[in-house]
Every structure is written in C-alpha cells, then in structure tokens.
C-alpha cells in the first residue's frame, strides 16, 4: 500500500513538476516574444533576431579588444618582419593577380616566381593599400616570357620593410 502511495505520490509530483516547468517555460517564452514585439520598430523593415544582433554586438566588442591588442603590439618596436600570407586569386599564362593578407601598406614588392624544371621566370609588381589588405598590382606575362610550353608552377612572394610572406604554388598551362 505504501509502495502504491509512494508511486502515486511520485507520479503526481512528476506531473506537477512537468506542468509547472512547462507553464514557466511557456510564460518565459511568451514574455520573450512580447519583449521582442515591444521592441519591434514601427517601420516596415523585416526583422531578424534582436538577440542575435545583441550577441553579434558583444562578439564585435571582443574583436575590438583583440585588434587593439594588435595595435599595442605593433607600436612596440620589433626587429623581425611580420609573416603574412599571399593569396593568388587568378593565375593565367598572361597575368597573375594576388593579394597579401595581414598587412595594409603601399610600396612593398610582390614577386612572381614561375618555374618549370630548371627554367625560372621572375616578375615583380608593387603592393598597394586596398581596403582591408594589400593588393599586388597585376603581373602581366607575354608568351615570349616562356621558353617552352607546358605546365609552369607559380609562386608569389611579398616583401616590405615590415612584412614578408609567400603563397602556395599554383600551376598554369602555357601553350
């Protein structure tokens, strides 16, 4: 009998807990919805999640701190050059475009090293400031630059008074 009662009590307790929990959760959810509704702008723009935006704003603040730390480090004199990465965005037999991430400056040198076997072609261009990085002025190639047709390997490197780095190798077909 007492077992039955215990099990009965347990069931009642469980049911009540679920109901109370659910009601509380539902009320909270409704309250959140109401809060969201209350903060809906009166204009007609489509809404996205306010919470999402808030969280993004906080993440942004963390990023602001990270960047400020970088600025602090950069202001301390360093004798070693910063290692940056060079990205080739398009390599053809007639031109190579690329940029350098991690640095924003004018005057650095972008160097294309194009090899096939023991043959090597070297071409350079200048890097220039571009919004959030350094873009290498396009490097133009003529068919007469290539002593032979076939697959040539292209690697870009970058060097300036502050930074240096290189790209991964990209192949081009020369006919």
């Amino acid at each position: 009998m007492s077992k039955i009662l215990k099990s009965r009590k347990f069931l009642v307790l469980l049911a009540l807990l679920i109901v109370v929990g659910a009601v509380a959760a539902y009320a909270y959810n409704s309250a959140q919805s109401d809060k969201e509704k209350n903060t809906q702008p009166e204009n007609s723009y489509t809404e996205s999640s306010k919470d999402q935006e808030k969280s993004e704003a906080e993440t942004n603040k963390a990023n602001v701190d990270k960047r400020a730390d970088l600025e602090k480090q950069a202001s301390q004199t360093s004798t070693t050059k910063k290692t940056v990465s060079v990205v080739i965005t398009n390599a053809q037999a007639d031109s190579i475009t690329s940029y350098v991430s991690g640095v924003f400056e004018d005057g650095g040198t972008c160097t294309a090293t194009i090899t096939k076997g023991s043959s090597e072609i070297i071409k350079t261009s200048k890097g220039f400031k571009d919004a959030t990085h350094t873009t290498c002025a396009p490097i133009f190639l003529k068919s007469s630059d290539f002593p032979s047709s076939g697959t040539w390997a292209v690697k870009m490197s970058y060097s300036s008074s502050t930074s240096e780095g290189q790209s991964q190798t990209v192949n081009i077909e020369v006919r």
């Binding site: 306010k50 993004e56 704003a57 603040k61 970088l70 991690g102 924003f104 919004a131 959030t132």
Partner: peptide, 29 residues
Amino acid sequence: QSLITDTWPWPIQYRSATGYGCPDTAPCD
C-alpha cells in the same frame, strides 16, 4: 562594427566603423 544595433558602442568602433584600412591580424591604419 555592429554599429547599427550596438546600444553602448565604444569610440574605437566609430574610429574604424567600416573596417577600412583594417587588415586581418594587423592594426588599423
């Protein structure tokens, strides 16, 4: 910079509002 929705933005966010001149992993110009 989340400037449209930030309810307490810092001056540094206005300073580099569109990230122009701000490379990855390096200071803003």
